[in-house]
């Protein structure tokens, strides 16, 4: 009985002693931290996506509190409202950024861009890109192995098994830029987010010459420059055989969409402009549900027809080449025994 008593007493004394020591040590070595950091962290979305450039929201909160000028810092997930609230709390001027959305600039679906070989290596775009041009004749487009999907922390980008291309859910996308960084082909771009998710953009990144593009893909930009001429706002530039629509200058007038002979300019969330009077019953895109409108297929200015013909000519040639180039492209040691 006595043993038990002494044991309990000893332990109690030890505990109190340790508590006292710990109390003084904690006082002595206390880390002074601005309590506002905790507050700001609470105001941030807590996604820890790294879209701001910091490892997590805590890092961002720390920087927001400590830096005098926070105009360079921006949380893409929380957006303008979140930044305003934080700036008001800290009494600093917030960065103002328009909302953006990730945009996949490749229209090379399985149908429009036939496969010429089979990739059999590690399932990663980064690996495939380090080895060769890809499963199709286009060396610039989407590889379709889903590095962007794996990078997304918001479940906002998914592969469409029918097209073999990733699709962004604009309502879930926070424009954190993780997919942009993950894509080895630099196919994804952060573009201005219009109301109702409207958009006009060139859905191609190929810098190949027109003839080469036509051979590899029926939906590629051939750099013909028609869109550049028709644009009234100077928003379109053609460089290295590739058109680019500046989202800051574009007014969504949609004139370029009808001009594009290959349908590389994509129109999202809007009906296309009415065609030439000859073809009033041009197929209209199902309004909001189907987001990507079929771009100008039938109503044909002469040039467009010529291009189509060229595409037809190119097609059999590509087929002929197909069995020749069938071997899968990977650099690998064989497993034969």
């Amino acid at each position: 009985m006595e043993v038990l008593l002494y044991t309990i007493l000893t332990l109690c004394v030890l505990g109190v002693l340790a508590a006292v020591i710990l109390y003084f040590v904690a006082q002595k070595f206390r880390v002074e931290e601005d309590p506002r950091i905790d507050e700001v962290e609470k105001m941030l979305p807590g996604a820890n996506c790294g879209g701001c450039g910091f490892a997590g929201c805590r890092g961002m909160a720390d920087a927001l509190v400590k830096r005098d000028d926070i105009s360079e810092l921006f949380c893409p997930v929380g957006g303008g409202d979140c930044m305003k609230a934080i700036a008001a709390y800290l009494g600093k001027a917030a960065a103002e950024k328009q909302p953006e959305v990730a945009t996949v600039r490749c229209g090379g679906t399985c149908e429009k861009r036939p496969r010429t070989n089979e990739y059999n290596g590690a399932k990663s775009c980064a690996v495939a890109a380090s080895l060769y041009a890809g499963e199709t004749g286009c060396a610039f487009g989407c590889l379709g192995l889903g590095d962007c999907v794996a990078a997304c922390a918001f479940d906002a980008i998914h592969m469409n098994p029918e097209t073999g291309l990733p699709e962004v859910d604009p309502d879930k996308c926070t424009a954190c830029g993780a997919c942009v960084k993950a894509c080895p082909k630099m196919v994804i771009e952060l573009r201005k987010k219009w109301p109702k998710n409207r958009a006009v953009y060139v859905s191609c990144v190929s810098k190949d010459k027109g003839a080469v593009v036509m051979k590899a893909c029926k939906a590629g930009c051939i750099g013909c420059g028609k869109c550049e001429k028709v644009c009234a706002f100077g928003a379109i530039t053609v460089e290295n055989n590739l058109a680019y629509i500046d989202p800051q200058k574009c007014k969504l007038c949609r004139k370029c969409v009808n001009e594009c002979p290959t349908g590389a300019i994509k129109l999202v969330g809007m009906d296309p402009l009415p065609k030439e009077p000859k073809a009033p019953a041009a197929p209209k895109a199902a309004p909001a549900a189907e987001k990507v409108a079929p771009a100008a297929p039938k109503a044909a200015p002469a040039a467009e027809k010529a291009v189509e013909k060229a595409a037809e000519k190119a097609a059999p040639a590509a087929e002929k080449a197909a069995p020749k180039t069938a071997p899968a492209a990977t650099k690998e040691p064989s497993h034969e025994s």
């Binding site: 070989n117 180039t325 069938a326 071997p327 899968a328 492209a329 990977t330 690998e332 034969e336």
Partner: peptide, 19 residues
């Protein structure tokens, strides 16, 4: 039944897509 054409040998070579 050709499945792959390799520039080099099977260990270090690089598979080709353009013959």
């Amino acid at each position: 039944n050709a499945g792959k054409v390799i520039n080099g040998g099977p260990m270090m070579g690089r598979a080709m897509v353009n013959l």
